[in-house]
Amino acid sequence: MDLYEHQAKELFQRHGIEVPAGGVATTPSEAREIAARLGAPVVVKAQVRIGGRGKAGGIRAAPGPAAAEQEAGRVLGMDIRGHRAHAVLVEAATAPAAEYYAAYLVDRAEGAFLAIVSRHGGMDIEEVAATSPDAVARVPVDPLTGVDAATARLLAERAGLPEEAAGTLERLWRVMVEEDALLVEVNPLIRTAEGRIVALDGKVTLDGNAAFRHDHPAPPPSAGLEDRARAKGLNYVKLDGRVGVVGNGAGLVMSTLDVVAGAGAAPANFLDIGGGASAQVMADGLEIILSDPDVRSVLVNVFGGITSCDAVATGIVSALDLLGERGLARPIVVRLDGNNAEAGRRILGEAAHPAVRQVPTMDGAAELAAGLAAGA
């Protein structure tokens, strides 16, 4: 379960990690009240569970209460990569003297924990690793010993962080293990001119299987695509590309993502409708994908087994009927094979929807979807 920034910072405070003073607002007037209470220049930050807020205009500086109200009015309701901002975090602006990166995560490939710490913060860690690999310390963490004071000092030293950051690294580890987290990330972790170490941002993913051990508040409802998909029981993950992908079975969907990438395009999502998906599930999935403003084309790749291709085709037709003119906005490439494939192709052919193109092979369908996305 991904937390919003303000929820992550509440956990940080519980474990003695300093964060900027602030509050959460759901209306512009509330943002003004929080800024007035803080009595300082503030930053208004969209609360969405996805990165890229700054680039999308979801983080705005405000010198005072009136400006905070104005900026909150601009940010509230903003759609950021399919996630709508229903709340903003208004917090005191904190000037960094230096910015760092710190994260703990579960390394599934190694079956262990991994610490990633860098003296370069405020940018994507992938970019830092590519341009300055020596500036990133990647250190496996023994789950039996964890990160004690000595290990935290070693992490800080290896990454080029000041000694005073070691205490915060130790406390971040406590967040990781005591809150049953899968990821704890701070970018940037800053040092102020006075030498204070402050978590200027926060990202925490909790292990839902351990929820019974905690009193963590559930994330408030939102209109984000992943939230909407979850409410419909769909296995959906938002990605950064332009080709929407639907498949039945996680293995087939993963293969489809690879084929789309091989065709020169980036997938916009992972969506597995499952092995026994009904026409309604197909319709729900397609509606979610076509609601994503990043999607330029859609690839439906289904191999009929338990899932019958005629049910999939009926779901596609039902979804497009439901969407009306919205269903004409993006081309949909369909590849059906396996159980009742001929019947499914016939249903789509008879419907003759102008957005639908049928292609018999997975490679051919991916190439067409990639080309349509590039030309959109």
Rank of each mutant, 00 (worst) to 15 (best):
E127K: 09
T131Y: 00
A93P: 01
V88D: 09
D134P: 00
E126W: 01
D107A: 03
M123H: 05
H86L: 14
S118I: 01
A92S: 14
E91M: 11
Y104M: 04
M123N: 09
A103I: 08
D124I: 05
P96K: 02
E99F: 08
A92E: 14
E126K: 00
A92Q: 15
R84M: 08
A85R: 01
A98P: 09
S118Y: 00
G111V: 06
E110A: 15
I125Y: 07
I125L: 11
L114R: 06
P133T: 06
T94Q: 10
L89T: 04
P96E: 13
A87G: 11
A97Y: 03
R84S: 11
A98N: 11
I125S: 04
A93K: 15
A97K: 15
T131L: 07
H83W: 03
L89D: 12
V117Y: 03
G111M: 07
T94D: 02
A95V: 15
E110I: 00
A98V: 09
V136W: 02
L114P: 01
L105Y: 00
Y100T: 01
D107G: 00
V128Y: 05
A98W: 08
G121I: 11
E126I: 03
Y104N: 01
H86I: 05
P133V: 08
A109T: 12
V90P: 05
S118V: 06
E91H: 13
S132W: 02
S118L: 02
G122S: 12
D124K: 03
R119F: 06
R108K: 13
A95D: 13
D134M: 02
D134V: 01
V106M: 10
A112N: 13
G82R: 01
A102F: 09
G122E: 13
A92V: 12
D107N: 10
I125E: 04
V106K: 00
E99D: 10
A98T: 10
Y100P: 02
T94I: 13
L105T: 14
V90N: 07
R119A: 15
H120T: 14
V106W: 00
V106H: 00
A97Q: 15
A103S: 15
E126Q: 12
L89F: 14
Y101W: 07
G121E: 08
T131M: 02
A92L: 06
A85E: 04
Y100Q: 05
V90S: 10
E91T: 12
L114H: 03
D134A: 15
E110H: 09
I125A: 02
P96Q: 13
A87N: 05
Y104L: 14
H86Q: 14
F113N: 01
M123D: 10
M123W: 03
A87I: 07
D107W: 00
A115M: 09
F113T: 01
A102L: 09
A112Q: 10
L114M: 14
A103R: 04
R84Q: 13
A97R: 15
G121H: 09
V128L: 09
A98M: 08
E99I: 10
A87H: 01
D107C: 00
M123Y: 05
F113R: 08
D124C: 08
R108E: 06
A130M: 03
A135H: 05
D124W: 04
A92H: 04
A135C: 05
Y104Q: 01
G122D: 11
H83S: 15
A98K: 12
E91V: 09
A97G: 06
A112R: 15
P133S: 09
